[in-house]
Amino acid sequence: MKGFIYLVVGIFFGTVLFKSEAASWFRIYEMFRFDAFHMYGIIGSAWFLGMLFTLWAKKEGRKSFFGDAITIVDKERSFWRYALGGVFFGLGWALVGACPGPMYTLLGAGFLPILFVIAGALLGTFVYGVLRKKLPH
């Protein structure tokens, strides 16, 4: 039954991704050309409200719906993995116009060639897992 909640959250998120056009290749292209505010408005307002929520959620004694303490873990401190990984990600994001959430949205929406993108993303994840110890972090 608990699983059903996650499915519903996903359906909600997938709908938002499609209807906001954040899942559209064209919007990502437009964003990287700085031609419109749309994507910056989406990410900026999600960040701002998310920050207010996170400040609230990190206060002592906040409980989840199930009564457990809420924990928001900090990211590990380092530079290279974020800088280099970020650049690789950005190159791919701009080329195929889809990040790991919208990939599923687009598959559901019926853009079947996105399967090649998903296959590539799984391969990229696998190669990272294999090469991880040889890469600068």
């Binding site: 920050m51 990984g85 970020g86 990600f89 950005g90 791919g92 994001w93 790991p100 391969l123």
Partner: peptide, 27 residues
């Protein structure tokens, strides 16, 4: 499409997150 997907998957794991994990949650 495969190369673009590869960069997204490789980069996201290398960087420890993607748009949702870093741009929204992390920021």
């Amino acid at each position: 499409l495969v190369i673009g997907g590869f960069l997204v998957g490789f980069g996201a794991r290398y960087a420890g997150g993607c748009t949702s994990g870093h741009a929204i949650s992390g920021l």
